[in-house]
Amino acid sequence: MPPANPRRRHHVKLITAGALLAVLAIGYFVFAGPHASEISSNGHMAHSEATAPREPGQSAFAAVAEIVALLDADPQTDWSKVDIGALRAHLVDMDRLMLDATARATIAGNTATFRVSGSGEVLRAIQAMVPAHGRELDNLVGWQVSSETTSDGALLAITVDNPSEIERIRALGFFGLMTIGSHHQPHHLAMARGTMTEH
């Protein structure tokens, strides 16, 4: 029987070693799971930005968290006046208005009138928020806006100079109109600072 070729024996060893390493690598990733690459040099899990969740999961929570971060970052914040409770109450009212109120529109010429109604806490939210937002809408160029509270909610009347705006108002409806303007965010910050109390 001829002696074994040393070169061949060397190749067999290399192939065997390579196969063993491949099996070990596959086993590691199967048993360690997708987070194996996140283990840091000190043995702890390193949570990367790519895997960290960003969605807070609830809109009021997100709004409060944003305001708290701004207050924390501002060295001029007077913590003796900060009122996060007032901001939360306002956000609850926003939910009640947007989700539980009923609005009916009447269009006559260049005027759109919205009758907004609800009961209980929804009624209170309507009467707090509709007049306040009406004053903001009245600042828009070419719009004359008036509002009044009623026994079951509020009336919001908008008269426009440009007749084509009526189609926009009709399309937006009451709930779309409530989102117009960029005053909400500064209003929330002022409310949390304790420098503004109205809705």
Rank of each mutant, 00 (worst) to 15 (best):
M1S: 15
P2W: 15
P2M: 14
N5W: 00
R7K: 15
R8N: 07
H11G: 02
V12A: 12
V12S: 10
K13D: 05
I15T: 13
A17S: 07
L20K: 00
L21D: 09
L24A: 07
L24C: 07
A25E: 07
A25R: 06
I26Y: 15
G27K: 12
V30D: 12
V30E: 07
F31Q: 13
G33M: 02
P34M: 09
H35G: 14
S37D: 15
S37N: 08
E38K: 02
E38N: 11
S40L: 06
G43K: 11
H44Y: 10
M45F: 10
E49P: 11
A50P: 05
A52S: 10
E55M: 02
P56I: 00
Q58Y: 02
Q58H: 14
S59M: 05
A60N: 03
A65N: 00
A65C: 02
E66I: 11
I67W: 01
L70D: 10
L71C: 04
D72L: 13
D72T: 10
Q76K: 15
T77L: 04
V82H: 03
V82I: 01
D83Y: 03
G85W: 03
L87E: 13
A89I: 02
H90C: 04
L91W: 06
D95S: 10
L97F: 04
L97H: 12
L99K: 12
T102M: 09
T106C: 14
T111N: 06
T111F: 14
A112P: 07
A112V: 13
T113W: 08
T113K: 14
F114R: 06
F114E: 02
V116L: 01
V116Q: 02
G118A: 10
S119T: 15
S119M: 13
S119L: 15
E121H: 15
R124M: 04
A125T: 05
A125L: 02
I126R: 04
V130D: 14
V130N: 07
H133Q: 05
H133N: 01
E136T: 06
L137C: 06
L140C: 03
V141M: 09
G142L: 01
G142D: 09
W143F: 12
V145N: 13
S146Y: 00
E148A: 11
T150F: 07
T150M: 11
D152G: 01
D152C: 10
G153A: 01
G153F: 10
G153L: 02
A154S: 05
L155M: 06
L156M: 09
A157F: 02
T159A: 09
N162I: 11
P163F: 01
P163E: 06
E165S: 11
E167I: 11
R168P: 09
R170W: 00
F175A: 05
G176I: 03
G176Y: 00
L177Y: 08
G181C: 05
P186V: 01
P186D: 09
H187E: 07
H188D: 12
A190Y: 09
T195Q: 05
